[in-house]
């Protein structure tokens, strides 16, 4: 067990190293220097460019810059090109803004995907299954931003309410009860839209997993013992069918950063995805690199956690 942990940690460290190199390299090795903030701006003279390159250490060799970058990032000294604020502070602040969206979305996904997926597996090859299959694929296939616009047009035209942003603009001093209700309402659309594709994908996994288990020998044995169908399905089949989803608990963590760029941009939600988009637009490379790196680190932690969880729940996996 301990040997396994050490081995995994060692592997993850190597992965982490290459992740840090790649996040750095995609920005620094691409054509066009990071210092070319706005090459067309006539007021950006070569002298200024030189001073700027010196100030941010961009005139040094790449390995030195690489070491410097991660030293500053880990000690919290790394500052944004744009407003000179500490990068880590910005990331933490925006993550806290994204957190409610992420939590509500995740709860929606997990509450709807499982019953839905199990139902389609049990009623396989019926009209219900065919309709839901097409519906699920429609949700997977529709571009998120298109669905968001359709929803916005519908909701705004029908109910004449504000849907963009954290809260209704210009109503900051209305008392905490109204404020809380307003904020909750503004959570509804972005989290529902964010969850839609998630529900579709996860319910599809649940369906195929259930189908696999339902054709297993021990389920046939349970049926031939004369157990009633509900007990066979929910006591014998479901328990094993759910095992792989334990690993998904660990993989939830990186969802906090990835995937929210489009919805946060549409809904003007000052979260982590929008921070990334703004940083890319303004060529704020320290923030861009740090976001890619932090997201990858969260994924690594997530996969480590899911490996451990899987070992805990599945006695067949022992090392």
């Amino acid at each position: 067990m301990l040997a396994f942990l050490l081995r995994t940690a060692w592997k993850k460290l190597w992965t982490l190293f290459f992740v840090s190199v790649i996040s750095f390299a995609v920005v620094y090795l691409a054509p066009g220097q990071p210092s070319q903030i706005d090459p067309l701006n006539p007021r950006f003279t070569p002298q200024q460019l030189e001073r700027y390159r010196k100030a941010f250490g961009l005139d040094q060799p790449l390995p030195v810059q690489y070491a410097r970058f991660y030293k500053q990032l880990l000690t919290g000294e790394l500052r944004s090109f744009k407003d000179n604020q500490p990068v880590l502070g910005k990331i933490v602040e925006r993550t806290l803004n994204s957190l409610p969206l992420f939590l509500v979305g995740t709860i929606l996904v997990w509450c709807y995907a499982f019953p839905f997926g199990i139902a389609t597996a049990v009623k396989r090859n019926t009209g219900f299954d065919r309709c839901t299959t097409v519906l699920v694929f429609a949700l997977i296939s529709i571009p998120g931003f298109y669905l968001a616009y359709l929803t916005i047009i519908f909701v705004v035209d029908t109910f004449q309410v504000d849907v963009i942003g954290l809260r209704t603009f210009g109503r900051e001093d209305v008392g905490w009860l109204y404020g809380a209700m307003d904020r909750t309402w503004h959570l509804v659309l972005p989290s529902l839209l964010g969850a839609a594709a998630g529900i579709a994908v996860l319910s599809r996994y649940v369906r195929s997993q259930m189908l696999e288990v339902m054709s297993a020998d021990y389920v046939r044995t349970a049926r031939s013992k004369g157990l009633d169908e509900n007990r066979v399905l929910y006591h014998h089949a479901l328990r094993n069918g759910l095992l792989p989803f334990v690993t998904m608990l660990g993989l939830l963590i990186p969802g906090l950063i990835g995937g929210s760029v489009i919805f946060e941009t549409i809904f003007a939600w000052p979260g982590i995805g929008r921070l990334g988009y703004e940083a890319i637009l303004s060529r704020d490379y320290p923030v861009v690199i740090a976001l890619n790196f932090v997201a990858a680190v969260l994924t690594l932690i997530g996969t480590l956690l899911s490996d451990l969880l899987y070992m805990l729940v599945d006695p067949r996996i022992r090392l």
Binding site: V26, V27, A30, G258, G259, L291, N292, T299
Partner: peptide, 11 residues
């Protein structure tokens, strides 16, 4: 490990 859409966007 990378969030694929954000990485594509960056590059």
């Amino acid at each position: 490990s990378f969030p694929s859409f954000f990485l594509i966007l960056t590059v």
